[in-house]
Design a protein around this nucleic acid. Structure first.
Lengths: 368, 368
DNA sequence: ATTTTTTGCGTGCCCGCACACGCAATTATT
DNA sequence: AATAATTGCGTGTGCGGGCACGCAAAAAAT
């Protein structure tokens, strides 16, 4: 035992000599001829360091290419970081369960790093509730706020407050560029429209039928994104000589009756509809209609892996889902705060998550 | 300063009392009325614990729902783990650069965790080179071996050696079930065939043309996987009354002349080919042909994001790539060893990576 | 010139866990 | 019965970094 241990230690010493991979603060200190405390002060800009010492340390830092050991750092940091999350209530719309679950998972994964998350939910149809929750939130001093800024005006007021208090913000789902935020996490709406078009391209030319572009609004402020999707979709066929016919339908009310009436009248007028592109996560509403009236053969493509969509995907009523990774958006939002607050890593200002193509054959790989 | 620190400590004490989230070995020891050493021995099955103490500790463990702090565990373990990687030479086939790069990235990411990787490459067309490298590898005592077992017989002999030496194995790309390995990481070939069919379904019915299923063999032993892909593809149309015509072509030699001749003669016989499904990563070879003879309108679908495929995807000659995540396979292989060796987490015996659908519109999200 | 303040720098403890080691108590061997 | 071997259990150290604290020397104030 004793001998083993001694051998092991010798081995370690030799090993560390051979493998220069691990550079510690201690090594920097030795190299610079100062103590670890001084190096620490330089690293954290804590002051109280003579210019000469600082230069020597910085030189050593560069020469040995010091990279802090995140593991050790995370361990020592017994500090707790409180993050507030401000998102639409998942109970009003299945779409919002996705980022919500992603955030919950991240909370779980990072709680050993000292991350504590408080969730504030608002009604996605009611700007006042957003402001209410935002005000409530600001009563506590958070180290960071992750939010989906659905309401432009209300967000601007809130963001101003956060900037004044120097609270870092991370936005997801919707980007509003007026203030400099730590990061935006989302998807490229235009590209997602093009992607949808790509998936429908061959069928549409072959059947030479029309395609309905369907905006089933989720919240009043998402219109801009939906337009981008529509533009991306149409642009795809730009240079096409025999481009398909487009029919754009917008249904803003969440009342199902209206939707059915709209669809009924559309199908009465047009008898050659071969595909429907739903620009929101509400493809399941159309799927229900198509199934009911026996039009399941019509190609249907929509967004997001909400449960209802996945069910219709399995049945074959929905043909493709483009996954905007709302779950990942929530998760990544928290993870970026971990990077920023704990690991002190740089976070990229924009993070576009992949546009996954989901079908009956591969959907289960993307479920959580 | 002094006061601040005191307040902080009191705060921490109160906090830990309120938040029971952090259960340490010390807490278990107190609860069970033993020392941390005893708890440690129970946790690691190091023996030298009385049955009574063991029971008490286990009870405390369960009651307090102890979860080890992986951060601390990883920090303390200054032990180095050496992992050998045995993979085909990326120089012979671009496909193998993907897992190779994934492994290299993982090596980089985990080197602060004490992971050291030695890479051994063999010629994917030559079983003897596999055995040679395997023997060479076994001269060093590795803590784990990650390999792509392309050659069945040769693998069996090697695996037996590893089992005798109690070296854990992780397989990827190709699964061989004879020995109990730590984990297999790969993709579901059958499903990937079905997925390809789904992407071609509407176009094929519409154009009522034939589809070529093209096996462009990469290595002699991958035939079984290619058959699964073909079966998945055909099964998709099983219950279809007007299923498309299938033409299966196999080209085993890597000589391009043969390939061109085969394609020429096929297109001479059949004039109604509307799609080609390449079951390997060699779709770019077909793309080059189609482009040269002016048949770019034919739908082309293949596997894997090797550079050549991505180029033809951008040009629009290849319509879809199904990504088997070879990069992720390599990365995940190393990551599973980190889980197993360092974090002592349980690793799942089978890990199926998603089958991503890649198009011109979303490919850049999937590049590394 | 003496006291106070500021600056520069080093030491020491803690985070949670792994592991070696050492001491006492028990059991086995002669 | 005396010695040796084994078992049970506690203590101590270190991993790399963060941070408080304290001591000396230099600068500023009296």
């Amino acid at each position: 035992m004793k001998i083993n241990s001694v051998i092991f230690r010798i081995y370690k010493i030799i090993y560390q000599d051979l493998e220069k991979t691990l550079v510690r603060i201690k090594d920097i200190a030795t190299k610079a001829g100062v103590s670890v405390g001084t190096v620490d002060r330089v690293l954290h800009n804590r002051g109280r360091v003579s210019p000469e010492a600082k230069t020597k340390v910085k030189a050593a830092l560069k020469e040995l290419n010091y990279r802090p050991n995140f593991i050790a750092r995370a361990l020592g940091a017994s500090k707790k970081y409180c993050i507030a999350v401000l998102v639409p209530d998942p109970n009003n719309d299945p779409y919002w369960t996705e980022p919500y679950n992603g955030i919950t998972q991240a909370e779980h994964d990072f709680n050993s790093h000292g991350i504590i998350i408080d969730k504030y939910t608002f009604n996605q149809f009611d700007p006042v509730s957003f402001t209410q929750q935002a005000k409530l939130l600001l009563k506590k001093a958070y180290d960071g706020i992750l939010l989906a800024p659905l309401f432009y005006q209300q967000y601007l007021l809130f963001a101003q407050d956060c900037v004044d208090r120097k609270i870092p913000l991370i936005l997801f789902n919707t980007n509003i560029d007026n203030f400099s935020v730590l990061s935006y996490i989302g998807q490229d709406s235009y590209q997602s429209g093009r992607l949808a078009a790509h998936l429908l391209y061959y069928p549409l030319r072959a059947f030479s039928g029309k395609v309905i572009i369907m905006h089933l609004a989720e919240d009043p402020e998402s219109a801009a994104q939906l337009m981008k999707k529509e533009k991306g979709f149409k642009d795809y066929f730009e240079n096409d000589t025999d481009k398909p016919g487009f029919i754009t339908l917008s249904v803003n009310t969440p009342v199902q009756k209206t939707l059915i009436a709209q669809l009924d009248s559309t199908f009465n007028v047009y008898h050659d509809i071969s595909a429907i592109f739903v620009t929101t996560s509400k493809a399941y509403e159309i799927a229900a209609y198509l199934e009911a009236v026996g039009l399941s053969h019509i190609l249907l493509i929509g967004f997001d892996m909400v449960e209802e969509n996945v069910n219709y995907l399995e049945k074959g009523v929905i043909d493709f889902i483009i996954n905007q990774n709302a779950y990942q958006q929530g998760y990544a939002g928290v993870a970026r705060f971990v990077d920023h607050l704990i690991l002190k890593k740089e976070v990229q200002p924009k993070m576009y998550l992949p546009l996954d193509v989901i079908t009956k054959e591969n959907f289960h790989y993307y479920l959580h």
